[in-house]
Simulated assay, not measured.
Amino acid sequence: MIRRPPTIVCYICGREYGTKSIAIHEPQCLKKWHNENNLLPKQLRRPEPIKPQITTISAKGFYDLEALNEAAWTSAQSQLVPCHICGRTFLPDRLIVHQRSCKPKVAK
Rank of each mutant, 00 (worst) to 15 (best):
K51Y: 04
P47A: 05
T74G: 02
A72E: 05
Y17H: 11
P92H: 08
V97R: 15
C102Y: 06
N35C: 09
R94W: 03
P49E: 12
P52V: 03
P5K: 14
K32S: 07
L95M: 12
P49A: 12
C29Q: 00
Q99V: 02
K32A: 09
Y63H: 10
I8C: 04
S75W: 02
R4N: 03
I50H: 14
P82S: 12
A23W: 09
A23I: 04
P5G: 10
E66A: 11
Y11F: 14
P41E: 04
A23E: 11
R45W: 09
R45K: 13
W73N: 13
Y17S: 09
V106P: 00
L39A: 12
D64R: 07
A59W: 04
K42I: 07
P6C: 10
A72Y: 05
E48C: 02
A72T: 07
N38P: 10
A107M: 09
A107W: 02
S78E: 15
S78F: 00
H34T: 10
N38V: 01
C29H: 06
K105G: 09
R3T: 14
S58D: 06
I96Y: 03
I2N: 13
V97E: 15
S75N: 14
S101L: 10
N38K: 14
G14K: 11
P5Q: 15
P5Y: 01
A71E: 14
P92D: 04
R4G: 04
R100D: 07
I85M: 08
A72R: 06
N37M: 11
R45F: 03
L40Y: 13
I85Y: 09
Q79F: 00
P104M: 08
R15Q: 09
S21D: 12
Q99F: 00
G87D: 11
L95R: 15
I2K: 11
I50N: 15
C29A: 05
E26H: 05
I12Y: 01
I85D: 03
L80F: 06
S101A: 09
Q79M: 08
R15N: 15
T89G: 09
F90H: 12
V81F: 10
Y17I: 03
E16L: 01
E66T: 11
I54Q: 00
R3H: 10
P92I: 12
I57R: 10
E16Q: 12
I57L: 08
S75P: 13
Y11D: 07
C13M: 11
P27G: 00
I85A: 00
A107F: 07
P52M: 06
V9K: 04
I12E: 00
T55C: 06
G14S: 09
C86V: 04
Y11H: 15
